[in-house]
Structure formats: C-alpha cells, structure tokens
C-alpha cells in the first residue's frame, strides 16, 4: 500500500523503496501464477485415454494396503462408488460377476474405491452385493482427486503399461459392457 499513501506527501512520493515495489510485484505475479496453475488443472477436466494413470495407495477395509506400483503388468479396474449413491447399485452385481470371471486368470485386478462414505454403511453395501474384490475407503479423498473424478460411479481401466485404457462415467449397464472393455485392455 506504500505507493498509495504517498500522494499526500509530494516529496516522499518519489522515494518509493525499490524493495517494496519489487515485493509488491512479486506478490501480484505469485497470485497470478497460482491461479494460472489452478486454471490449467481445471481446464484439464477429467483424465484422458492414454494418459499415465496416477499412483495411489488404497488401504483396504479388510486390513492391509495395495500400492498401485505393485500392480504393474496387470490390467487394473478402479471403480469409484459410495453407499449413498443409487446408480452405483445398478452396476454392483455386474462388477462382482466380472471379477469372478477374471479372478482365476490372475491378470486382472479389480479395486473398489469408496468415495466420501461412512464405514458402517459401506461394509453393509459390500455385504449386500457380496463383493469380494479388494475395497477400501478413499482416505482424504486423495485417490479421487488424483483421478479427477466428477462424481460416482466412475470406472477407470488401466492397461499393463500403466496407461489409461478406458473410462466409464456413470454406471455400467450390462456385464458384457464390462467384459468388452476389460478384454480390450487385456488384448493390447
């Protein structure tokens, strides 16, 4: 605010300290830079096909953790869901059926990420749909932020090379839709 006060003192007005001016510019530029970064992130929108999938750690309801790095070489299906989300229920059975098909092969991993949910109700939900693939809470909403999800349900299929192969916004409607998407990722 230094420059702004000075008009009242003509002589003093000339003596704006260079440090102060530089500092003021630094603050303004800093603000703009931060907004620019954020703007870039906003403009990115969701994840795109072919982008490298973000690294994450999922701590499971049944104890233990899964590191995304340990899954390299496998096809990973990441499903975001919540117990309060009605559309999620539409695809829950199909996802479990798909898992039962791929589980013996060992080439595909299904992960359920429970977004902004309460543990009791989440466990009840898993129980109700008899879901057996690994599930865990999205602690600190870190995973959903890394995947830049817009809502639940959303499903991301990551290829063996760690690149994003398939993105589904909203629920899957049929089992064959899931199978087709996973098979395409496996075939690559």
């Amino acid at each position: 605010m230094s420059e702004q006060l000075e008009p009242t003192k003509d002589k003093a007005a000339r003596k704006a300290s260079p440090v102060g001016v530089a500092l003021a510019w630094l603050v303004v530029l800093g603000l703009l830079a931060v907004v620019a970064i954020q703007l870039r992130a906003t403009m990115q929108g969701g994840m795109g096909i072919g982008q490298p999938a973000p690294a994450f750690t999922l701590s499971l309801f049944d104890g233990g953790e899964i590191q995304s790095a340990d899954l390299a070489g496998k096809v990973v299906v990441v499903n975001f869901w919540a117990s309060w989300c009605a559309p999620c229920e539409e695809e829950a059975e199909e996802l479990q059926m798909a898992w039962e098909i791929y589980e013996p092969g060992g080439e595909v991993v299904f992960l359920g990420v429970d977004y902004a949910d309460t543990e009791t109700l989440a466990r009840a939900y898993l129980e109700r749909f008899q879901i057996t693939y690994p599930n865990g809470p999205d602690l600190g909403t870190r995973i959903s932020q890394a995947f830049r999800i817009r809502g639940v349900p959303e499903t991301y299929i990551i290829g063996r090379d760690g690149l994003m192969k398939y993105i589904k916004i909203g629920p899957f409607t049929t089992l064959s839709e899931i199978l087709a998407a996973v098979d395409r990722a496996l075939a690559e």
Binding site: A82, S83, W84, A116, D117, T118, E119, T120, L121
Partner: peptide, 14 residues
Amino acid sequence: PTLACQQWRDQIRE
C-alpha cells in the same frame, strides 16, 4: 439435505 450428509451426521452420532 443430501443422503450422503445425512449418513455423515449419523456417523457423528455413532
């Protein structure tokens, strides 16, 4: 008013 928030309040109660 959403369902998710209602569940959260229930969790606070628990």
